[in-house]
């Protein structure tokens, strides 16, 4: 579905990506893990065109994504849940969800999707008319995911959905991620929290300072000694 080949990105004189290869197969959950500053976000940002790579290619169903503008990505079915949630704090919860469906014209279907989001996240329904800025961190993350889903993505990319959230909420979010996946959405997940993400991922990549250093299925990486040492810590539990 999505194929990244030899992607190189530099900005401010720093080489953020030193030629990475990554593939997301349709219908899978793919995780990209790694420490802060490894280049994970840069990878996502280059996919949606917010960062311009100087070499390499990104193709989506065989189509070169570098020619497509960021604002047209959702029309292609590619939606990003940005790092730090980035909900529109000055808009209501409902408006945030509606703006996720901004390019769509099928009002009836939008309404249906809205109901679906509200069943996924009942807490958002209670807060429909509240300004998104007044929500808690967990609720904002749910809203950010809901907003992305309103665009009916085929490929949903998530940048650190667990960042700054309490463990219970993280669990909830990851349950939802699996639920969304069951609905037929392909997911590319970026996480520092290797433990949770490897458990749900079919395919996973480990990134270090702009390079992919390891790859395999989620299970393989979960039991890999290097990964254990570097990302899971000594006492793995849960």
């Amino acid at each position: 579905m999505l194929k990244i080949e030899d992607l190189k990105v530099a900005y401010g004189g720093i080489q953020a990506l030193k030629g990475i290869n990554l593939e997301v197969e349709e219908g899978k959950i793919v995780a990209l893990i790694g420490a802060n500053g490894a280049g994970k976000s840069t990878t996502l940002r280059s996919i949606v065109g917010l960062v311009k790579p100087y070499s390499g290619s990104i193709t989506y169903h065989g189509e070169d994504l570098s020619k497509i503008k960021t604002k047209d990505m959702v029309r292609k079915g590619i939606t990003l849940v940005p790092e730090g949630r980035r909900v529109f704090g000055n808009l209501t919860v409902l408006e945030n969800l509606k703006i996720g469906a901004f390019y769509r014209k099928d009002e009836k279907e939008i309404k249906k999707d809205l109901e679906w989001i509200y069943t996924l996240f009942p807490r958002l329904k209670e807060r429909t008319w509240q300004q998104a800025g007044t929500l808690s961190g967990g609720e904002q993350q749910m809203l950010a995911v809901g907003r992305a889903l309103m665009s009916r993505p085929k490929l949903l990319m998530m940048d650190e959905p667990s960042l700054g959230l309490a463990p219970l909420i993280v669990k909830e979010i990851f349950n939802i991620i699996q639920q969304i996946h069951k609905e037929g959405v392909t997911i590319l997940l970026i996480e520092q929290n290797a433990n949770v993400s490897l458990k749900v991922a079919h395919q996973a990549y480990v990134m270090e300072t702009g390079k992919i250093t390891l790859q395999g299925t989620g299970k393989e990486l979960l039991t890999n000694e290097d990964v254990k040492k570097a990302y899971l810590g000594e006492s793995v539990h849960g």
Binding site: V48, R75, R86, L91
Partner: peptide, 10 residues
């Protein structure tokens, strides 16, 4: 509020 995210939403 946020140019970049607005762009991501289409």
């Amino acid at each position: 509020k946020d140019h970049e995210t607005a762009r991501l939403m289409g």
